[in-house]
Computed example of a mutant assay.
Amino acid sequence: MGDFSYCQDCKKSTEVVFDHAAGDTVCVECGLVLESHSIDETSEWRTFANEGQDNDPVRVGGPTNPLLADGGLSTVISKPNGSSGDFLTSSLGRWQARGSNPDRNLIQAFKSIATMADRLGLVSTIKDRANEIYKKVEDQKPLRGRNQEAILAACLYIACRQEDKPRTVKEICSVARDTTKKEIGRAKEFIVKQLEGEMGQSVEMGAIHAGDFLRRFCSHLGMEKQTVKAAREAVQKSEEFDVRRSPISIAAAIIYIITQLSVDKKPLKDISLATGVAEGTIRNSYKDLYPHISKIIPRWYAKEEDLRNLCNP
Rank of each mutant, 00 (worst) to 15 (best):
N147H: 03
V137I: 14
I113H: 02
I113V: 14
Y134T: 07
K111T: 10
K111C: 06
Q148K: 15
K136R: 13
A114R: 08
P142V: 10
F110R: 02
K136V: 06
D139K: 08
L122N: 05
R144N: 08
K135H: 12
G121N: 04
A109V: 07
I126C: 08
D118E: 15
A130W: 02
A130Y: 04
D128M: 09
M116C: 05
A153D: 03
F110K: 00
L143I: 11
T115L: 10
T125M: 06
D118H: 15
R129C: 09
G145D: 02
I133G: 05
A117R: 05
R119Q: 11
I126V: 13
L143F: 08
K136Q: 14
K111L: 08
Q140E: 13
E138I: 03
I126F: 04
S124I: 15
M116R: 07
R146A: 09
D128I: 04
M116L: 11
F110T: 02
A117G: 08
G145R: 06
L152H: 14
G121I: 03
A114P: 01
R129K: 12
Q140P: 06
R129P: 00
D139H: 02
D128E: 12
Q140T: 15
I107E: 03
A109W: 08
T125N: 10
Q108S: 13
Q148R: 15
A153M: 02
F110N: 00
A114I: 03
